[in-house]
C-alpha cells in the first residue's frame, strides 16, 4: 500500500560519508593506473582531515507526486524540447526532490588555502569536497529508498537514479520551481539569481524510483553531442549490474 508523502531532513554524520579516493584522484586528473608521488598522497590525507574538520553535511528529501513534478520539471519553460527525464519521470513509481550540502565552511576553507598560495591542497580539498557532496547525495537517496523498502515498495527490478537541473536537457532555471517546492533553505541551501546554489558544494534534483528499464535511454539527444562526459552510460550500466 502506498505510504503517506515523505519529507525528511536527513541527519548525516561525517563518519557515514565513505569517500572514494579513486574518484578524488580522477577529479585531479590522476590516472588510476599510474604511480604518483608521496606528496600527492600526503595532500590527499591532509585534505581528508580538513574535510572532516570543516564539512557540515545535511540533506533534505521530499516525495513529490508526478503531476506536481511535471510543474517543477517544466520550470521556466527553458528545457530542451526532448529530454530523457521527460520520458522517464512519467513512468516512475515514486519521485522525490532532494537537496544536499556539505556546508559553507568548507568552501571558505578552500578559498583561504588559495589565498595562502596553498594551491595543491586547496585544489585537492575542492576535489574531496565535490566527492563528499556526491556521497551525501547517495546517503539521502539510500535513506529515501530505505523508507520505501520498509513498506515493500522496492523490489529486485527497481532502479533508482537521480537527475539534476543543468544536466541532460533539464535547464538550470528548473532550480527555481524545485526550490519553491522543496525549500532547501531548511538545511541552509539558498538559490542565487544565477540559479546556482549557496553553499556552492550542494546538489539538488529529483530521485526517480521505478523499473530499471525506465532509466535506460540512448544518448542521441540533440544536446548529447555537446556533452564531454557521457556519465549517463556508466550510471545506466551500473544500474543493470546491480
Amino acid at each position: 500500500m502506498k505510504m503517506k508523502i515523505i519529507r525528511e531532513i536527513v541527519e548525516i554524520r561525517i563518519s557515514d560519508i565513505k569517500l572514494e579516493k579513486a574518484n578524488v584522484f580522477k577529479n585531479q586528473d590522476i590516472p588510476l593506473n599510474r604511480e604518483h608521488s608521496l606528496k600527492v598522497e600526503t595532500l590527499f590525507t591532509e585534505a581528508m582531515e580538513l574535510f572532516i574538520e570543516f564539512s557540515h553535511p545535511k540533506g533534505l528529501v521530499s516525495e513529490i507526486p508526478i503531476p506536481e513534478f511535471e510543474v517543477v520539471y517544466f520550470g521556466e519553460g527553458l528545457n530542451e524540447k526532448k529530454t530523457p527525464l521527460d520520458e522517464i519521470f512519467k513512468k516512475a513509481d515514486y519521485l522525490a526532490l532532494f537537496a544536499v550540502t556539505i556546508g559553507e565552511k568548507l568552501s571558505q576553507k578552500i578559498g583561504e588555502l588559495f589565498e595562502l598560495d596553498e594551491f595543491a591542497l586547496g585544489s585537492m580539498l575542492d576535489a574531496v569536497a565535490s566527492e563528499g557532496t556526491e556521497k551525501v547525495a547517495d546517503i539521502v537517496e539510500n535513506r529515501f529508498s530505505e523508507l520505501l523498502a520498509k513498506s515493500d515498495e522496492i523490489t529486485s527490478s527497481t532502479g533508482i537514479l537521480r537527475y539534476c537541473p543543468g544536466y541532460c536537457g533539464w535547464h538550470m532555471s528548473g532550480q527555481k520551481k524545485l526550490f519553491e517546492f522543496l525549500h532547501p533553505e531548511d538545511i541552509g541551501v539558498t538559490l542565487l539569481d544565477s540559479y546556482l546554489m549557496k553553499p556552492l558544494k550542494s546538489i539538488s534534483g529529483v530521485i526517480v524510483i521505478g523499473e530499471k528499464e525506465i532509466h535506460n535511454f540512448i544518448d542521441s539527444y540533440a544536446f548529447c553531442s555537446q556533452c564531454k562526459t557521457h556519465f549517463c552510460r556508466d550510471r545506466i550500466s551500473e544500474l543493470f549490474r546491480e
Binding site: Q28, I30, R34, H36, S37, K39, E118, F119, A120
Partner: peptide, 18 residues
Amino acid sequence: AHEIFLPDVLLAAKAMYA
C-alpha cells in the same frame, strides 16, 4: 607527458611564488 600530475604542478607553482 603525463610524468607528473596536477598536484605536483601546483606544488611547483607554490615554490615559484616563494
